[in-house]
Simulated scan of single mutants.
Amino acid sequence: MAPIWSLREFLARKREALSAFRSRLRDQPPSPVTLRAAVTVAAGTGLRPVRVRDHTVISDSGPALGGYDLGPNAPELLLAAMASCIAHSALAIAADRELAIDDLQVEVSGQIDYRGALSVSADAPVAPTGLHYTLKYRGEVTDAEMTALQADLERLCPVLLAVLQPQPLSGQVQRLEA
């Protein structure tokens, strides 16, 4: 199915939406939006349906970890969130600058050493390492415009910054009533 709009047409619509949203934000007292994701592990399968607003994404592990490989695992979802956020931030910046971009793709890669997460080796890292993103584009934009877009992207992308500048995370364990 052919897209309804070209990416350039979408960027023009996005620019209007961003302008209107920024205007509303300026007229309101500061009020951060609460974000939530929740999982109830499926008994018997260990599937982890992640609920975010009215959306569900199935998270699972491969057979080596006792899963069924019915969805991405959590570290893969982290990379997916980063790729999506980089793409969205790039679109917002491109829309603001009226850049003539016809195609935009983002790939995020990294490595995980399961020896760390599974306590096989104290020397192995637990968190994903070697994180790298590639933003590919096609359009009538200069190298200088894309270099400036990347600089702002690395200053404004929330998920990228959450990884680069970790925020405190508190946690608790709570008993469920039968």
Rank of each mutant, 00 (worst) to 15 (best):
residue 38 A to I: 05
residue 103 D to P: 03
residue 51 R to T: 10
residue 101 I to F: 08
residue 103 D to R: 12
residue 150 Q to K: 10
residue 171 G to C: 10
residue 171 G to E: 08
residue 23 S to D: 06
residue 60 D to V: 12
residue 148 A to Q: 06
residue 83 A to E: 10
residue 140 E to A: 15
residue 3 P to A: 00
residue 70 L to I: 13
residue 175 R to P: 14
residue 171 G to P: 13
residue 139 G to E: 06
residue 17 A to C: 05
residue 57 V to K: 13
residue 120 V to S: 04
residue 53 R to S: 05
residue 162 A to G: 07
residue 33 V to Q: 07
residue 115 R to G: 06
residue 176 L to D: 13
residue 20 A to M: 03
residue 114 Y to D: 03
residue 72 P to Q: 13
residue 74 A to C: 09
residue 47 L to H: 00
residue 166 P to G: 02
residue 55 H to Q: 11
residue 108 V to P: 01
residue 94 A to Q: 04
residue 128 P to W: 01
residue 105 Q to W: 07
residue 50 V to A: 03
residue 174 Q to Y: 08
residue 128 P to K: 00
residue 143 D to C: 06
residue 6 S to C: 12
residue 67 G to Q: 00
residue 4 I to D: 09
residue 24 R to G: 01
residue 127 A to V: 07
residue 87 A to G: 09
residue 146 M to Q: 08
residue 64 A to Q: 12
residue 167 Q to M: 03
residue 178 A to D: 15
residue 19 S to R: 10
residue 139 G to H: 02
residue 149 L to C: 14
residue 122 A to D: 14
residue 60 D to S: 14
residue 84 S to L: 05
residue 120 V to A: 13
residue 123 D to E: 09
residue 28 Q to A: 14
residue 169 L to F: 04
residue 66 G to V: 06
residue 50 V to P: 00
residue 64 A to P: 04
residue 94 A to R: 12
residue 3 P to E: 02
residue 157 C to N: 15
residue 74 A to M: 03
residue 83 A to C: 09
residue 5 W to A: 05
residue 69 D to K: 02
residue 34 T to G: 05
residue 90 A to H: 03
residue 144 A to T: 11
residue 99 L to K: 11
residue 6 S to W: 01
residue 113 D to V: 07
residue 19 S to T: 15
residue 81 A to C: 12
residue 170 S to Y: 07
residue 155 R to E: 14
residue 102 D to F: 12
residue 56 T to D: 08
residue 32 P to G: 08
residue 170 S to V: 13
residue 134 T to K: 11
residue 22 R to K: 10
residue 145 E to D: 15
residue 173 V to K: 01
residue 105 Q to I: 08
residue 61 S to C: 11
residue 15 R to W: 00
